[in-house]
Measured scan of single mutants.
Amino acid sequence: TGEEYIAVGDFTAQQVGDLTFKKGEILLAIEKKPDGWWIAKDAKGNEGLVPRTYLEPYS
């Protein structure tokens, strides 16, 4: 299990392996990579890379 984050903006996948999401979606951070791209999972179970700058902790 990971930590929940809320998307603060829309993001469209730029390449294969990225995860597209919309502002307000809750994402589960699976792995926090030091380069600023995290592996996350959305509510539908889709998994991919997301930019850290689009996420804020969800409580």
Rank of each mutant, 00 (worst) to 15 (best):
T1Y: 13
T1F: 14
T1D: 12
T1S: 13
G2I: 13
G2W: 15
G2T: 11
E3G: 10
E3V: 11
E3Y: 11
E4L: 15
E4T: 14
E4Q: 14
E4Y: 15
Y5S: 00
Y5T: 00
Y5L: 04
I6H: 03
I6R: 09
I6S: 03
I6G: 01
V8A: 06
V8W: 05
V8L: 13
V8Q: 07
V8R: 09
G9Q: 15
G9I: 14
D10L: 02
D10F: 05
F11V: 05
F11H: 06
T12R: 09
T12S: 09
A13K: 05
A13M: 06
A13R: 08
Q15W: 08
Q15N: 14
Q15Y: 10
V16D: 13
G17P: 03
G17F: 06
D18H: 15
D18K: 12
D18E: 15
D18F: 15
D18M: 15
L19K: 01
L19D: 00
L19I: 04
T20F: 04
T20G: 11
T20R: 04
T20I: 03
F21G: 00
F21R: 00
F21Q: 00
F21P: 00
K22W: 08
K22D: 03
K23Q: 08
G24C: 08
G24H: 05
E25S: 09
I26Q: 03
I26V: 09
I26D: 00
I26W: 07
L27M: 07
L27D: 00
L28K: 09
A29Y: 04
I30F: 06
I30E: 02
E31P: 03
E31V: 14
E31A: 11
E31Y: 12
K32W: 06
K32M: 09
K32L: 07
K32C: 07
K33M: 10
K33W: 08
P34M: 11
D35G: 14
D35H: 07
G36K: 04
G36Y: 05
G36L: 05
W37L: 06
W37V: 06
W38D: 00
W38I: 07
W38N: 00
A40W: 04
A40K: 01
K41G: 03
K41H: 06
D42H: 02
D42F: 02
D42I: 02
D42V: 02
D42R: 02
A43M: 13
A43K: 12
K44C: 14
K44P: 03
K44M: 13
G45T: 01
G45S: 04
N46D: 08
N46K: 09
N46F: 08
E47T: 15
E47Y: 14
E47F: 14
G48Q: 01
G48T: 01
G48R: 01
G48S: 01
L49M: 11
V50R: 01
R52V: 13
T53E: 15
T53G: 13
T53S: 15
Y54V: 08
Y54L: 15
Y54C: 14
Y54P: 01
L55R: 00
L55P: 02
E56T: 10
E56N: 07
P57N: 06
P57A: 09
Y58L: 11
S59Y: 13
